[in-house]
Design a protein around this nucleic acid. Structure first.
Lengths: 205, 205
DNA sequence: AAATTATTTAACATTTTTGTTCAACAAATT
DNA sequence: AATTTGTTGAACAAAAATGTTAAATAATTT
């Protein structure tokens, strides 16, 4: 086999385009053109736009799944540090995949079949992660290290502040064209860590 | 004039469709059909899909603008209560417009001309609001009522946790089909208030 | 070298979506 | 009553997007 450099290239460009514009907004001819292959080549490897999209979505969900596994694989350390590590890792994951969440959320809302896919792929592993975090938190709460709290809620807080940091980034930059992304991300990550630390702090409320 | 009930109806349905599916995903014939008017009627009032979309976007940005004004018009009370009020009002606004933010963010990212529109429409008033909040916070910080902090950051925290509560709601419900939205929203709002209160609490860190 | 696989070009077919036109009719306004 | 405005239907045109085909060539594998 020729190792299909072009096929890979098509998929790469398809990812970019679908992630930016969604299924409805992306154009197959544009994908082919940007990938530097002929229009027919695209259909040679992927019969339909839908099929191409499925591959992209499949890869992205896979990636999401792996990222959950990675993000949660934290060696032994005090639970507070673990939570900090969680926030930072999740933030880092997002900084490498800034428009993945927006993409998934949109497609899942617009096209129910992909809600199913998400449910199948990403959910079981996420449930395990929540259960793990809950055990950690409960144990630490008994020692008074953190306040008693729901792991799912904490996770949602983490995801929402991190996620939103990336959602607004392009808007902020359209407002301040000279904005320093590096600095922004750095500051935001710190802010988010701080916010989550307050959240689990046992001395409050 | 006949007071254009149908024209209004078209706009209503167009809002629903564009908000759910975005510009690229929405279909003019479907809009006409759901509005209970003929296909030709749609083009009679709105020459093109783009024009129809502009009306919707215009209205939505207007609404956003007004909501900012409303959300921030808080009578005299201690600043901590003001912040709580802010969170609750913003949450309420979102509960009435659950997919507005997602819509705006998407279109603004995909179509730069609407980033301009957003900048023109919503930004000046938001800047005022941030300035107001900053003054309030600074005054309160001097009295030790809240911790010294950046108003823009606090606002971003508020928006992100509230916003995300609504983003995930449809996903959660696809996971747990029997989920009680009412209860979920109520709990989430409380959680978000709590999170923000921790954030401004002067006794932490 | 032969066979297979990858790739292009360029035309074409199909489908989907948008937009137009026109004749007729209904409703409201003057 | 006459006129303007709203409305439909149905056909049609035009544009945009997807998908197909076949012939020719290049590259790779056997």
């Amino acid at each position: 086999m020729k190792d299909n450099k072009k096929q890979k290239r098509i998929l790469e460009v398809a990812e970019e385009e679908f992630l930016m514009k969604g299924f409805a907004g992306a154009r197959t001819v544009e994908i082919a053109q940007k990938a530097g292959v002929s229009h027919s080549m695209l259909h040679y490897y992927y019969k339909t736009k839908e099929q191409l999209f499925e591959h992209v979505m499949g890869e992205k969900l896979q990636q999401l799944k792996e990222s959950v596994a990675t993000v949660f694989m934290i060696e032994d350390m005090p639970v507070v540090e673990k939570v900090v590590e969680l926030v930072v890792r999740h933030f880092e994951f997002l900084s490498e995949n800034p428009d993945l969440p927006r993409f998934i959320i949109n497609e899942v809302i617009v096209r129910p079949e992909y809600a199913e896919m998400l449910k199948r792929e990403a959910l079981p592993i996420l449930k395990d992660a929540v259960a793990w975090l809950q055990r950690e938190l409960d144990a630490a709460a008994k020692e008074g290290e953190v306040r008693t709290m729901d792991a799912a809620t904490l996770l949602m807080d983490i995801v929402s502040v991190n996620f939103f940091s990336f959602i607004v980034a392009p808007i902020l930059s359209s407002v301040k064209p000279d904005m320093d992304f590096q600095a922004y991300y750095h500051a935001r990550c710190q802010e988010n860590v701080q916010l989550i630390l307050n959240r689990i702090n046992p001395d409050i409320k």
